[in-house]
Design a protein around this nucleic acid. Structure first.
Lengths: 190, 190
DNA sequence: TGTAAAAGTCATCAACTGTTGACTTGGGCG
DNA sequence: CGCCCAAGTCAACAGTTGATGACTTTTACA
């Protein structure tokens, strides 16, 4: 047959490493830690499977590396506290442009069942979400308020992930959005 | 050697079938759909692994059967609506006696990542939890209120499952309980 | 008691997993 | 150009998984 149109990639360790990282991110978000296989990830990154183990040592280390790239969810903290409920509710429910923060939430909830992933997951959750969230909230029992709001966000995202929004019409979604805003606000306010 | 002290079990198809079902329930709750293996389940039920496939056809059908045994979560509905928040909050957070309803919630969240388990899971969630919950709530937008409360419960349970309550002292837990009660109440009230 | 079907077991299959070691290819430096 | 180490590939491993067909054991009925 003809030659491959373009090798399209000169050898570049940093670039392929990043490609693997991106592919792993997507797969982990879609299928969870156990469900995603190194071969799938490697195929997505257009790389041999052996290279993944070679670069990151093990699947678990790759997972940790992916979690370490998580953003600080700082976009949730741009705005006033009194605005928090509606702001986050719209961000979560208007999922058409699934932004980074929610993607990482998906990784977490999809990997919660894995024993190997549990410990890295817990640590990442604290450092990237809970702690900065509580610090931003301030006030009395900030950690409890942060945890409760975080649990609510997680639950809603998870429900979305499971049901794929099959069972809610447009009016229902609007109602859900406003009510979620109210409840979320009740969770974070001192 | 001596004889086995007691074969301890006459051949009884219904009993072994139930034993398999119980073992599957526990394993699915602990490790999720993908994580639990038929051999583990069979070992727990003191049964050959082949028998599981023989009785239930496939792992997925076994999973469906387990979900079909889920209680209607009717214990959440014993009491007044104005009492709902505190009642459920204490039930969830005093997890020492993990009752059946929460166990099934564990199965759901631990299996949420599995593609094979997704559809049966969604159906069971609706019929065993969401629909009767919404019916019990009544009033305007009962389905939205039921979903939001359910999502919150799921998120809290999941957070518990991940963190194993490592990071909250006794005072914090009390605070979490009262606040969860308040937020939960805000979610269900019209 | 004798026998046939149910209940349970065994061995095995094919597929897939993460990981490793030996190998080949490529590009930059002298 | 010619070398050499990094970058990438190939094949294979040991383990586990779900599933299947042939086999043995028990129970119940005539």
């Amino acid at each position: 047959m003809v030659e491959l149109p373009a090798p399209s990639r000169t050898r570049n360790a940093a670039a392929t490493r990043q490609a693997i990282l991106d592919a792993a991110h997507n797969r982990f978000a879609k299928e969870g830690y156990d469900g995603a296989s190194l071969r799938e990830i490697a195929a997505d990154a257009k790389v041999d499977a052996a290279l993944v183990s070679r670069y990151f040592g093990s699947k678990e280390e790759l997972f940790v590396e992916v979690l370490n790239c998580a953003p600080d969810a700082s976009d949730l903290f741009e705005g006033t506290l009194s605005d928090f409920g509606t702001r986050v509710a719209t961000k979560i429910l208007d999922d058409r442009d699934v932004d980074q923060g929610v993607e990482y939430l998906l990784i977490m909830l999809r990997s919660a069942s894995s024993l190997a992933a549990a410990e890295p997951l817990r640590r990442s959750m604290r450092t990237h979400f809970h702690d900065p969230f509580a610090a931003w909230l301030g006030g009395p029992q900030a950690d409890v308020r942060a945890r409760l709001a975080g649990d609510l966000i997680m639950g809603v995202c998870m429900s979305q992930a499971i049901t794929s929004d099959h069972d809610l019409d447009e009016e229902g979604r609007a109602s859900l959005r406003s009510r979620l805003a109210k409840v979320l606000q009740a969770a974070v306010e001192p």
